[in-house]
Design a protein around this nucleic acid. Structure first.
Length: 593
DNA sequence: TGATGTCTGTCGGCTT
DNA sequence: AAGCCGACGGACATCA
């Protein structure tokens, strides 16, 4: 070792292994707040700690380093991290989640740690951080010789689409239609980025090196061969996706390439003045066309209705199909109501599917999926009685996914917890070893329960109680006035205000039995759950197809409902360049008081 | 080399 | 019912 080490070596040499590991990981995520898992806490250091403590209003403390310097530190427990993460996102930060990826019991030295995902506004898939009634898009924009390519991905639903725009005019209205939360731009487009920032102040803009906009391999995610600029935009999205999620999701739909001319062009001013999504005065959907038309029962339907409004069809045949479906639903109010009732029990399986595909679905969500799927056969049955082509097509396409229902039903209990490591998930009778462990645990607990009665008799202390807590495990509690009756074999463990707590070797022996079995049970249930989730991933595309059809059905029912309530009539369409309205009313204005 | 203390926010459990 | 305290689980410093 040199007596005059370079500054770098000097610092490095004195770093603890943990700090070395931290800095190495932090180096790869300079633009994120790094949540560094340490036992039960996510800890932040240096600048991250200063920033986070300020925004989150938590204590800024420090960790002593080898020398006099102190390392600023703050942290939150893992089980309460999500509101803190949400708050950082709200403030425009991204959060990199670094987990311990090794069992600390078997690790040599410090445990290995890795960033398992990066949480950004545009990559949200959990309920918090998402709006149920709107897609949550990540956008990529790039420019080539005056034409712009726009790519959109909603990771929470798998929606993936893009278009090419000649010139700038329509750029902002196209973006506004999709209202992306986050954008990827090449570093060279900072000027355009600043304009976007002004138009969409809530959008997080990432400037990425131009290599990110890599067209290579995009065909895999597309049915047709996209034009080069669009390939670049889509490529940036896919790369960002991979880098933030660390898994290749199976629920991303093939890139849908659309042209703006396929739909009625609605520039931003028109969108606003027609009060399509929100009223001119005020915010929210109330007092907008969307608010008037929305009688949907599922979140999937609400999102779909919004899309339909943002992208009005131009093809009269397609419009006719929708109108026919709405008309036939309008004419059958009773059947429509029962369909609605059935849909009310359908969860947001589109987003649930995304969490499944990303390996983040919990037992409760799987049961919700099963409950939703169980309604499909009846929905299908009822739908088949309708004459409309579109409804028939939807009915034919409704996939009841019996194997998924079966697999979940035979393994997961009806009302499981949301956690995956605490047991209580797997049904009795599914797995032999699990059943055996459960009976060991039950027997142990039974013995302990019986012990209470026996010890009362033996000692003559009627108020003697056997209790349990996390810290001391099982104990025998005797109130102060009865202490003189305590037998010799009791070992004092804890003294309370009006009582003392004891253990006996026999009690601890059964405790070991119970706790040992329970630990194994939790581990085994965890393993069995992961296995099931893994198996179900194969069904993701089918679940997604189902979700899409249910969403469409929900919208059609909603439109039929509102047509009846507000006495709308079905328009006739011609290819002529003229519009004729008799005794017309304004759908939004007439709703105002 | 081992035992003991330290450090976030939260929660359970004891005390008042 | 509110208040107070320790454990949670890692890594590390300090002291024996």
């Amino acid at each position: 070792m040199s007596s005059f080490p370079s500054p770098k070596e000097g610092v490095r040499g004195r770093l603890t292994p943990m700090m070395k590991q931290y800095l190495e990981i932090k180096r790869q995520y300079p633009d994120c707040i790094l949540f560094f898992r340490m036992g039960d806490f996510y800890e932040m250091f240096f600048e991250d700690a200063r920033t986070a403590s300020r925004i989150l209003e938590i204590a800024l403390t420090s960790r002593e380093k080898g020398e006099k310097e102190k390392v600023p530190m703050c942290g939150v427990p893992y089980h309460a991290a999500s509101p803190y993460i949400a708050k950082l996102l709200q403030h425009g930060y991204k959060v990199a989640i670094c987990e311990q990826v090794e069992d600390p019991r078997t690790a040599r030295g410090i445990v290995r740690r890795e960033v398992v995902r990066v949480i950004t506004p545009g990559m949200a898939v959990e309920e918090e951080g998402l709006r149920g009634d709107e897609n949550n898009y990540l956008m990529a924009l790039c420019e080539e010789e005056g034409s712009y390519a726009l790519g959109f991905l909603d990771l929470s639903t798998g929606d993936f689409k893009g278009c090419l725009l000649e010139g700038r005019e329509l750029l902002e209205s196209e973006i506004a239609k999709n209202n992306p939360r986050e954008a990827l731009l090449p570093e060279g487009m900072k000027a355009a980025g600043r304009q976007l920032e002004k138009a969409f102040p809530w959008m997080l803009i990432n400037y990425l090196p131009v290599e990110y906009f890599d067209p290579e391999g995009v065909e895999r995610f597309s049915r047709e061969d996209p034009p080069l600029p669009l390939k670049r935009a889509a490529g940036a999205i896919l790369r960002y996706l991979l880098e933030t999620q660390k898994v290749e999701p199976t629920h991303i739909r093939p890139l849908e390439i659309y042209r703006t001319e396929q739909y009625l062009i609605l520039d931003e001013t028109t969108q606003r003045n027609l009060e399509l999504f929100s009223p001119l005065r005020g915010s929210g959907r109330k007092g907008s066309l969307l608010g008037v038309l929305d009688r949907t029962t599922t979140a999937m339907g609400r999102r779909k209705l919004r899309q339909w409004l943002a992208y009005p069809l131009r093809d009269t045949e397609e419009i006719g199909r929708r109108l026919e479906a709405v008309a036939s639903l309008k004419e059958a109010p009773l059947e429509r109501d029962s369909l609605r009732e059935l849909l009310e029990g359908v969860a947001d399986i589109e987003r649930l599917n995304a969490r499944l595909a990303l390996g983040r679905a919990n037992p409760r969500e799987l049961v919700a999926l099963k409950g939703s799927l169980e309604r499909v056969p009846e929905i299908r049955e009822r739908l088949l009685s309708f004459g409309s082509d579109l409804l028939q097509e939807i009915a034919q396409g409704l996939d009841p996914l019996e194997e998924v229902v079966e697999r979940i039903g035979e393994r997961i209990v009806d009302d499981p917890p949301a956690t995956i490591t605490e047991g209580g998930i797997i049904r009795d009778g599914y797995h032999q070893e699990l059943d055996e462990l459960r009976s060991i645990s039950r027997e142990g607990k039974g013995w302990i329960a019986r012990m209470e009665a026996e010890e009362r008799k033996r000692t003559g202390i009627p108020s003697l109680k056997v209790g349990y807590n996390q810290v001391f495990g099982y104990y025998i509690e005797v109130t102060r006035p009865n202490l003189h009756l305590v037998p010799e074999d009791y070992v004092r463990k804890q003294t309370l205000k009006g009582a003392e707590r004891f253990i006996t070797p026999k009690l601890k022996e059964y405790e070991r039995k119970v706790l040992g079995a329970e630990e194994r049970i939790k581990a085994l249930e965890h393993e069995l759950f992961l296995r099931l989730r893994e198996e179900l991933i194969a069904y993701c595309p089918r679940i997604q197809g189902l979700a899409c059809r249910l969403a469409e059905l929900d919208v059609l029912i909603s439109l039929a409902q509102v047509a009846e309530e507000n006495r709308y009539v079905r328009p006739s369409l011609t290819e002529e360049d003229r519009i004729e309205i008799k005794e017309g009313r304004h759908p939004v204005i007439e709703q105002m008081d």
